[in-house]
């Protein structure tokens, strides 16, 4: 019982550290694709936070939020890629 609470807290702390590192790359990132990569990792981290919250609180409907978030992050990444390809920063025409 005690070990389980420690595991919950430890995974929260680890995810927070990873989130800070992801935001550091989001702030630092030299180009726009680097920032998109950081945003995608932050979406994965949010799925991890949802998993920890579902386990620690017992509210299982939040798994649906994780499912929708996975698909939405994919759509965001593909949208950014399309924006870059169709003439974001490149002087094409």
């Amino acid at each position: 019982m005690q070990m389980f609470d420690i595991a919950i807290i430890a995974s929260n702390v680890l995810l927070s550290i990873a989130l800070l590192l992801g935001f550091w790359r989001l702030y630092l990132g030299p180009t726009l694709p680097d920032r998109v990569v950081a945003l995608e990792l932050i979406a994965s981290l949010t799925i991890g936070f949802i998993a920890v919250y579902v386990i620690s609180s017992g509210r299982t409907p939040f798994i649906d939020v994780a499912m929708v978030l996975a698909l939405t992050a994919f759509l965001a990444a593909v949208g950014f890629a399309r924006y870059l390809e169709k003439g974001g920063h490149r002087d094409d025409d």
Binding site: A10, S11, N12, I17, A18, V37, L45, G48
Partner: peptide, 20 residues
């Protein structure tokens, strides 16, 4: 459950470290 959570969070830290 705790093992899977901690190992998964550790892999997330590895991913963020690689990102930086």
């Amino acid at each position: 459950t705790g093992l899977f959570l901690v190992v998964g969070a550790a892999f997330m830290v590895v991913a963020a470290l690689g990102l930086v």
